[in-house]
Design a binder for these strands. Structure first.
Lengths: 202, 202
DNA sequence: GATAGTAGAGAGTGCCGCTATCCATTCAGG
DNA sequence: CCTGAATGGATAGCGGCACTCTCTACTATC
């Protein structure tokens, strides 16, 4: 309960309607918002500041859904202090050009592309200088997943629900993907070495 | 530089060879290890304690690669304090049965399955009670990705490299997947609504 | 022998996510 | 109308974590 007070103070939850100077009323919408905050914190692992950013995006009335999703992605991708390897930056640029993405010319302009370049930079720093070869196959798999995401979002009714579904699908989806990926590793490695004697390797 | 001393104290880096009581020598292996630690912290977002766990797994000589990867996954999936929804637990169990996974009968036994159940529980708590429908398509996409991962790992030579490649492929891979997923969303939504007038929605 | 530099260890720092306390008000029960 | 419990609002405190600072003992170098 003191946590709720804290969230109110931090502006994560809208203040309740004051029925009298010391009595505020909270409806289902407040509860829903509280659960969303907890979801972002517990499952998404977001900081309070990031949650505030995400909520601000959700509550903005003006922008298109496309831009909203982009803003959410920016909010949940806090840039790490990793210094970028120029080679990794070139890898990312080449990847974008290969995919016909022209608007992301400047890698450092977006948190998402910065994160990608940072990840490849770190991979390089520990001797993995071909990690970028995985980008294309990753995109193939993720397109499959993205199609499922869009279908899922399409089943949601109102516009507010759509926005929330995108946030949930993005953030909780990331967590789910992490977990399911483990299962996929196990399945594929079993199917690859299936015919070999059970050496229990890989 | 004081950070290195801290890591030494925390046991994340092996002590250097003492050439004299106040002079220690560090070789390339130490540097490599330091970079790996920074990679896990900066890109993987792991806590120092989790990094220690991961390193212990890497340094263990005995177990099979399969078990090692499992141990790494456990280490990087710290369980959240979310209380599990029984329905979500059933969803996860059903998913495993559908995939012929028998060994994971107890969802709470593994951090990974617990994380999955927690994510679905939180999704339910905010009214997304069909999120589990995404598990199967997610697995499809992730199998594609897993095949690429295995190929990537296969290009690595020595056994030590394989283990590290698995850790890197898993942890840095998670970050890369997050970023590329954004691009996939954009591409797929464009291709889905491609023929429609440019309403700039979704 | 004076100086500079290092290993090692303990204490201190800053941030973040809460949590506890305080006070004025006010509502419920009698 | 009086009393006690509860609430809103604000301020201060706490605990954990990832460092960072400092202090001591020692030694290699000039």
């Amino acid at each position: 309960m003191p946590t709720i007070k804290y969230y109110l103070r931090e502006g994560l939850l809208p203040a309740g309607v004051l029925t009298s100077p010391n009595q505020a009323h909270y409806d289902d919408e407040h509860l829903r918002r509280l659960r969303l905050v907890r979801a972002l914190v517990d499952v998404g692992g977001l900081s309070i500041a990031s949650v505030r950013e995400v909520l601000e995006v959700i509550d903005t009335r003006e922008e298109s859904l496309h831009r909203k999703l982009g803003a959410v992605q920016e909010a949940i991708s806090q840039p790490s202090p990793v210094e970028l390897d120029p080679m990794a930056v070139k890898d990312v640029q080449a990847f974008f050009e290969r995919q016909g993405e022209t608007e992301c010319a400047d890698v450092t302009a977006s948190n998402v592309t910065h994160m990608l370049a940072a990840a490849l930079s770190v991979a390089r720093s520990i001797g993995h200088d071909h990690f970028q070869d995985l980008l294309d196959p990753y995109l193939e798999g993720l397109k499959l997943i993205a199609r499922a995401d869009l279908e899922y979002i399409a089943t949601r009714g109102s516009r507010d629900d759509v926005i929330e579904a995108m946030v949930v699908g993005t953030l909780i989806g990331d967590t789910v993907i992490k977990a399911v990926r483990r299962l996929a590793h196990a399945q594929v490695s079993r199917e690859v070495i299936g015919e070999q004697p059970p050496s229990d390797e890989v």
